[in-house]
Structure formats: structure tokens, C-alpha cells
Design a binder for these strands. Structure first.
Lengths: 146, 146
DNA sequence: ACTAAACCCTAGTGTAGAACTGGGGTATGT
DNA sequence: ACATACCCCAGTTCTACACTAGGGTTTAGT
């Protein structure tokens, strides 16, 4: 029930891109990595995965970098996590080891129901929402500081 | 987002115990393992974990075995999975590697919200419910067969 | 008391995935 | 041309999962 490092890094990176979305300028891996202290070579791979899902666009060469693939209010957390965690091409074969009984399918159904509930929560939040929540929190922190 | 083998085995075993709950007689590891085709030496460990959580009681010696720790309608799926997956004694230290930023805590909060939604689903189902659902399904299968 | 049946405890093994790390290739703005 | 930045693929370390194995302890029945 843990949020994987992978997904967390990717979400933090996208959050960074969302923050600079208005500028229209691409952000470089190094910058994002430094800002959120993520190992840059690892982030590179994650961004490549996000690119394949169309969640980010890349610009090669000098002055290149990454841009959000869509507007920040049109990207929700669920699809980001799906993009990274979803490497289930052989998930059907993986389960073939355990025999599929009546009871096991029943359990899987209920488990799926739980997953669906969790996904519904993640689908409700967009990158835009996160940015706003973060800004609200920052304001609160400043208030307390004073 | 996969139901671990561990949890599945444990739930299947508990389901078996719930089925024979009325008899008052203990069920042996071998019997449960054979019925649900689970490796018996592995199941032994899972039952030990369940025992430490009080979800099952054990009777040692000849004619021994396992009994449910409580009535089947008083055990829900959430606590079973918690019992098995909850080995997080050092989870606090585990996260110390990644710096805790404002953004990361925000992400964790939303993730927790999702987890909570999933757990709520699992809490709604008891072993009793599962037995009834299984029996209903079995009846349906028979109907289709005729 | 003896024995066999059952649980109990600890430790080892093999595999797979997560989280990096590194090297070399390709496009692009100046 | 050349530095900058993305691109692709391969290797490495570490940890957890899913077992596997060996020996110990309790108890019912004889």
C-alpha cells in the first residue's frame, strides 16, 4: 500500500512542469532533478515513459527540455500512475501458476472493487489541483511563521 | 495494485475455516492446503502470523489444528490483509532517504486518501459475506450446468 | 510411558522487481 | 562545428516475496 518511488518522482516532476506551464519554455531534466532532488539519470527514464504515454512532450537539442503534453487541469493522478506502473502485458500469464478457483476469483473481484475505489480518488485530482493545494499550503506555512 | 499471494492464501485458508466453523472441530494445515492447493509449509507460516494477530487459534498435538479466533461475521478482509502485510516496523526510517518536501507530503496525503477508500471497501466484507457469496455463485454455476 | 500426529520456530534459497548507474548515440540552437 | 540536451540500452545492487528444509515441542490415544 506504498506509493512507489517511481510514481512519486514522476508526479513531482510533472508538478514542476505544471508550475512552469504558462511560460511555454521547456524545463530540463537537470533543473527538475535539482529542484525536487531526484537522481537525474533515473528521472530521465521516467520522463521517457511519460513521453510514450503522451503525458509530456520533449524537445531535443540545445535549449531543449520537457513540456506537459496537455494542460495541467486535464492530467489526473490516476493516469500518471497507470502510465508508470502499467507494464502488465503478461499479467494474464503470471497468474496461471495458481489455479483459478471459485473462491480466488471471488477474492479478486472484491480486491478489484477496492482498487477501483482508490483509483476513483486519484482520478479526482489533477496536476492543477495539486499546484493550488501546494500554494495554499505554502501560504498557510507563511502565516504560521509570522 | 496486485493482491499478494500471501494475502490470497491467508484469505482462502480463513474462508475454509469459516466454512467449517459450526462444527467446532479444528482443521489441519494439510487439509486446508490440499483443499485450496497452497504449499503447506508456506501456509504454516501464514497461519502463525494470523495466530499472532488473534485471527485464528491453534490446538497443538495430535487431533490438533486451527480454529477461527472469532465468529466469521466479526472478521473483515481489511484486518486480515493488515495482519499479513503490516510488517512496517521500520517504515519511518525507510522514507528518511528521500527528503520530505511540501510537495511530497501533499502527494502522500492524497495517496493515503485513496488507500483509505480501498480499505473501506475491504472493511465492508466479512468472512461470512464471502462464504455466502461463494455459495450463491456455486448455486448459479449449477443452474447454468443444468 | 511411548508414539505418532500435529503445531512451532528459525534459517536458507531462488527469483523478480525497484532503484539506481553508466556509456555511447542523436538531434538542435548558436 | 560544437556544446547542449534528449535518447536508448545495458549492468548492478538490494530487498521482498514465495517458497523449502530441519529440528523442536505439545498432546491424544494406546
Amino acid at each position: 500500500m506504498e506509493l512507489s518511488c517511481k510514481s512519486e518522482y514522476a508526479l513531482l516532476a510533472l508538478l514542476e512542469l505544471a508550475t512552469h506551464y504558462q511560460s511555454g519554455e521547456p524545463l530540463q531534466i537537470r533543473q527538475i532533478a535539482a529542484q525536487q532532488n531526484i537522481p537525474d539519470r533515473y528521472l530521465e527514464q521516467l520522463l521517457a515513459t511519460l513521453r510514450r504515454c503522451g503525458l509530456v512532450r520533449s524537445q531535443r537539442g540545445a535549449k531543449g527540455g520537457y513540456l506537459l503534453g496537455r494542460e495541467p487541469w486535464k492530467i489526473n493522478l490516476f493516469e500518471v500512475i497507470c502510465c508508470l506502473e502499467g507494464t502488465d502485458s503478461q499479467s494474464a500469464q503470471k497468474d496461471s501458476g495458481n489455479k483459478i478457483t471459485l473462491e480466488s476469483t471471488l477474492l479478486r473481484e472484491i480486491w478489484q472493487e477496492g482498487c477501483h475505489a482508490a483509483n476513483a480518488v486519484l482520478q479526482r485530482y489533477t496536476l492543477q489541483d495539486l499546484c493550488e493545494k501546494r500554494d495554499a499550503k505554502r501560504q498557510l506555512d507563511i502565516m504560521y511563521y509570522i
